[in-house]
C-alpha cells in the first residue's frame, strides 16, 4: 500500500517538473543578466532627447541619464542641449554642463567635453556656470 501511494505523492509534490516540460514561448528575462552597451545607451538617450516635448520630459530624461555610473557621450549631451533650446529653457542647458562637471573624474575630462562641445555652445550662446559666476568673485 505504502509503496503504491509514495510515487503519487512525489509527483503531486513536484508540480514544477511538469510545468518545465512545457516549451516556453516567451524568453525568460533576468534583470541582472541584461547589460546595455554604452553605444545602445547613447542611442537610446539621443532618441529620447530628440523626442522630448516639454521641459518636464527633458529634465526627467536628464535625471535618468545622469543617474548611471557613466558620463553620457557628447552626442547625448548635444541632443539634450538641443532639446533645451527647443523647449526654450536656458537654465537647463547650463545645468547640463554643470552635470557633466559633476560626473567626470577630473578637470581634464571636463575640459575635453567643453572643447568637444565648443561649437555647440557658441552656436546656441550657452555659458557654463563657472563663466556666469566666476569663482574669484
Amino acid at each position: 500500500m505504502r509503496s503504491q501511494i509514495l510515487p503519487v505523492l512525489r509527483l503531486a509534490s513536484r508540480p514544477a517538473l511538469k510545468v518545465a516540460a512545457i516549451p516556453r514561448t516567451t524568453p525568460v528575462r533576468y534583470a541582472h543578466a541584461h547589460q546595455e552597451s554604452f553605444e545602445a545607451f547613447s542611442e537610446r538617450y539621443v532618441t529620447f532627447f530628440q523626442n522630448a516635448e516639454d521641459l518636464f520630459e527633458l529634465q526627467r530624461g536628464l535625471n535618468n541619464c545622469f543617474a548611471h555610473d557613466l558620463v553620457p557621450s557628447p552626442a547625448v549631451i548635444e541632443a539634450a542641449v538641443r532639446a533645451a533650446r527647443r523647449v526654450n529653457d536656458y537654465s537647463t542647458a547650463v545645468r547640463i554642463f554643470e552635470g557633466i562637471s559633476e560626473k567626470v573624474e577630473n578637470k581634464a575630462q571636463y575640459q575635453a567635453y567643453l572643447d568637444e562641445l565648443k561649437p555647440l555652445r557658441e552656436e546656441l550662446g550657452i555659458m557654463t556656470k563657472d563663466e556666469l559666476y566666476p569663482k574669484s568673485s
Partner: peptide, 16 residues
C-alpha cells in the same frame, strides 16, 4: 540665446 545679456542669463540660471 546669443542675444541675451549676461545678467539675463544669470537671472535665468538663478531662478531655476
Amino acid at each position: 540665446w546669443k542675444e541675451l545679456s549676461i545678467d539675463e542669463k544669470k537671472a535665468a540660471y538663478y531662478v531655476s
